[in-house]
Amino acid sequence: YIGSKISLISKAEIRYEGILYTIDTENSTVALAKVRSFGTEDRPTDRPIPPRDEVFEYIIFRGSDIKDLTVCE
């Protein structure tokens, strides 16, 4: 799965898409590269977040912050 395009939804209901870079089982983290944030879209939340235009080089997510993770390709 390393190198695959991943769609990830955080506990804050924010969806991110990026390339799976590393999975650290010891620290329970997932790192994505070339990440875009799509905001909360239409998911119900107390704090709606708009999508962002910039592409983040890397984002490291803690396993406890991840609600859903899907391989896109």
Rank of each mutant, 00 (worst) to 15 (best):
E41T: 04
C72E: 08
S64Y: 12
S28F: 08
E73K: 04
I49D: 00
I23T: 15
I60G: 07
V55N: 07
G3K: 05
E17D: 04
S10D: 15
G18A: 04
R62V: 06
E57P: 10
P48Q: 14
V35N: 15
K11C: 07
C72L: 13
V71S: 11
G18R: 01
R36H: 07
I9A: 02
T25D: 09
Y58I: 09
N27W: 13
T40K: 10
E57Y: 03
E41M: 02
S10M: 06
I66M: 06
L32P: 01
K5W: 04
E41V: 00
Y21P: 04
K5S: 08
T25R: 12
S10Y: 05
I66H: 03
I9Y: 01
F38M: 14
G3F: 14
G3E: 01
E54R: 12
G18E: 00
A31G: 12
S37W: 01
S10P: 07
I59E: 12
R47G: 09
V35D: 03
P48S: 12
T40V: 00
T45I: 02
K5C: 06
V55T: 11
T40N: 07
I23K: 04
E73M: 06
T29N: 15
I6H: 06
S28V: 06
S4A: 12
P51W: 04
V35L: 02
A12F: 04
E73Y: 13
L8R: 01
R52F: 05
R15E: 02
V30H: 04
D42W: 05
A12M: 07
G63K: 15
G39R: 11
S64D: 14
D24S: 11
L32S: 05
S10Q: 03
E13R: 06
R52K: 10
I23G: 07
T40L: 04
F38N: 01
S4N: 10
E17S: 03
L69M: 09
I49G: 01
S64V: 13
L32G: 01
L69K: 03
P50I: 00
G3D: 01
P51D: 04
D53A: 09
S37T: 07
P51N: 04
Y16D: 01
S37F: 10
S37M: 14
S10L: 03
K5F: 04
D24R: 01
T40F: 00
N27F: 08
E26Q: 09
L20H: 00
S37L: 08
R43F: 07
S28T: 08
E17F: 05
F61Q: 04
E13A: 10
D42M: 13
R15Y: 03
A33F: 06
K11A: 09
P50G: 10
A12N: 13
V30T: 03
V71Y: 09
K67V: 06
T45C: 14
E57F: 00
P51G: 12
D65H: 05
I23Y: 14
K5L: 11
S64N: 15
A31Q: 15
R43P: 05
A31C: 06
S10E: 02
E54F: 06
S4L: 04
P51S: 11
I23S: 07
F61V: 05
L32W: 00
T25G: 10
R36G: 03
P44C: 11
S37P: 00
V71N: 07
R47H: 14
I9P: 00
D65P: 01
L69N: 05
A31R: 15
L69H: 00
E13Q: 14
K11S: 10
L69R: 01
R43W: 01
T70C: 06
I49T: 14
I9L: 08
R36L: 07
I60N: 15
P50F: 10
I6V: 13
P44I: 14
P50T: 08
S37G: 03
L20N: 01
I60L: 13
E13L: 10
D42S: 07
E57V: 00
Y58R: 15
E54P: 01
I19H: 07
P44G: 14
D68R: 13
S28C: 08
R15H: 08
Y58S: 15
P50D: 05
E57N: 05
S64P: 10
T70D: 09
E13W: 07
N27T: 07
P48D: 10
I19S: 07
D53L: 07
S28L: 08
R36Y: 04
D65W: 00
V35E: 02
I66P: 00
T45Q: 02
I9M: 05
S10F: 00
K34I: 01
A12H: 10
E57S: 12
L32K: 00
S37K: 05
K34C: 03
S28Q: 11
P48H: 15
N27K: 07
E26R: 12
R15G: 01
D42T: 07
E13C: 07
I6A: 09
N27L: 12
I49C: 13
L20M: 14
T25M: 04
Y21V: 13
T45A: 13
A31H: 15
I59Q: 09
